[in-house]
Computed example of a mutant assay.
Amino acid sequence: MTWRTVFSNGGKADEMMRTIAIAGVGEMGVALARRMIAQGQHVVTFPPRSAASVERARQAGIEIVAEDEIGGADFFFSVVPSEAAAPLAERVASICRSHARKPVYCEWNAISPGKLQCIADRLAAAGMTLIDGGIIGLANWSVDTPGPTLYASGPAAGLLAEVGDLGLQITVMDAGLGAASALKLSYAAITKGLIAIATMAAIAAQRKQCDESLTAELARSQSGLLDSFSKSVPNMLPKAQRWTSEMAEISDYLGADSQAGMIYAAIAKVFGQIATSVDTRDFLACAYRVRPEGQCCANALRG
């Protein structure tokens, strides 16, 4: 593969400006784009669907280009909700199929290895190269902090190491396609699974009027857990709908018909219920706050 020859950092041949196309100008996509732009990279996207997304892209310094121009990028970063990953790959494959030069497709979404393989097949049919990826960490917009870690696997993953500094923390795994996706889902099964357990326990305790006692006991015997839940449970609330599809991917990864898979299918339903219930979200926003004795959460669940 031939790269553009715009040099930086003392003229090293692997330190060039790249054009990175990105789809998904939500919180994580914009955070990654800001970091790459701060490092001198050229980041583009095709026209977002909403006016809010257009404004987000412009404020981040992302150039909005015609859909057909995506084929001229060096890399294509897919950073979308799990359920949108396969349709996006099909769309990009269709755009790039007739191009002589095609971007390397980086699939960063929380998807099962099985879905990744389907995407790999679609892209291969269009003559495109795929890198399997998984993002672990928060979408921190500040370029002064390390930011999330991007794990990459598959035969082409080394291309990300060869291109120099994109302004991202990228770890290239010595493993095949599916490894980075599996790592992401295994990690999410632990971290988001714990948040789901805390959520279900809080709801059940409130309904039996022992939620204050639960919080007090956690403060006494498990202060680290309480401190974590007091932040992670409220932070989950605006993401509950997205986490629904991510839990479904974990279920597929573990085996939908296995006991482990069925646990995460049930957790997907829990997050789905949270996403659609204002009362539940209001209660969970304060469920793990330590309150003075006798003071209840103002947003107690009814019924």
Rank of each mutant, 00 (worst) to 15 (best):
V65Y: 09
W141M: 10
E212I: 07
G127M: 04
M17A: 14
V163P: 01
Q39R: 15
A201E: 08
L116H: 05
I70D: 07
Q59G: 08
A100K: 15
M16P: 04
S181I: 01
I203T: 10
P155L: 00
Q117L: 00
C106I: 15
I267S: 01
T215D: 04
R242I: 03
F75P: 01
T215Y: 05
A57R: 12
A38S: 13
L177P: 04
G24P: 04
D252S: 09
A198F: 14
Y187D: 03
V54S: 10
F46T: 11
Q273P: 04
S258H: 05
L301R: 09
I250F: 10
S230K: 07
T2W: 01
I203V: 15
Q241R: 13
D174A: 07
A189F: 03
A189S: 15
R56V: 01
C210F: 06
A204N: 01
T145W: 03
I136E: 12
N109H: 08
C96N: 12
W141A: 14
S181P: 02
Q59W: 00
G178F: 11
D279Q: 14
Y151Q: 02
A198E: 12
T280S: 12
Y151M: 00
C297D: 11
V54F: 13
Q169M: 04
T215F: 05
F271S: 02
L214C: 02
G164C: 00
M173Q: 10
W3D: 14
C297Q: 08
A73Y: 09
V43P: 04
T19E: 15
K115A: 04
I263Y: 06
G164H: 07
N140S: 12
R291Y: 04
E107D: 14
E107W: 09
V104Y: 07
E246Q: 04
I111T: 13
Y151A: 00
G137N: 08
R302N: 03
L150M: 14
S258F: 03
G114L: 03
I170K: 13
I20W: 05
T191Y: 06
A300F: 03
G294H: 06
C118P: 01
S50V: 05
I136D: 09
Q241Y: 10
S251T: 07
V233Y: 07
L160M: 14
G40D: 12
S213H: 07
D257R: 06
R220M: 06
R56F: 00
D144T: 14
S53I: 06
F7P: 07
C106A: 13
S142K: 13
M28D: 07
E162S: 05
F75G: 07
C286R: 14
S251A: 14
